[in-house]
Amino acid sequence: MRNISGVDGDSQGSGIMGKKTPRRPLDIIDQQPAASSPAEIAALATCARHGNKPDELLEILHELQEHVGYVPEATLPVIAKALNISRAEVHGVVTFYHDFRREPAGRHVIKICRAEACQSMGTEHLCQHAEQTLGTKLGGTSADGAYTIEAVYCLGNCALSPAILIGDRLFGKVDPIRFDSIVAGLNKEAAE
């Protein structure tokens, strides 16, 4: 079975990608069940929505993560097979980019900018405050599973530093007091 979804992996039409077809070292994946868990089914569907084009791998991973919350290990062979690329290539991409998570995150992911402009306005202090109030280090999740905090490097809001991003919501001039009120707002939303 060459391609589970039935869409020809060569259909992206780009010459350079086409050359890659023979590079399929992990034949073992062929013996695995096509897709059993909901995450694997979601992965398959996402790939199909992108025409199983290998050049859309980043988009696919973003969408999958949006849907499942992270990129589960079990989806990697499924994606590899759908896009007709090696599992090592998918693994390489998932681990190269900071955005892709391999473990579930908290209900809210708070990205705190740690870059220079935000440093000049005390982001170091803000990071410490966030770590203390949420009881986890940057990169970790609070014990109640509500918040993951992560360091990022510039959110393009450098004239209104320090900046944080929660989902698609950007906040500027975030000092510890404002941070607490933002978190309180999220708690309230969750309670409603």
Binding site: I16, D55, E56, L57, E59, G92, V93, Y97, D99, F100
Partner: peptide, 26 residues
């Protein structure tokens, strides 16, 4: 539109090309 995935190096033009092609930004 192609969206990056949090890698500063993907601003370097050839790394960006790799990334648009769906690969690691080497």
């Amino acid at each position: 539109v192609r969206m990056g995935a949090g890698a500063y190096i993907c601003g370097e033009e050839t790394s960006m090309l790799e990334s648009i092609e769906g690969k690691r930004g080497i």
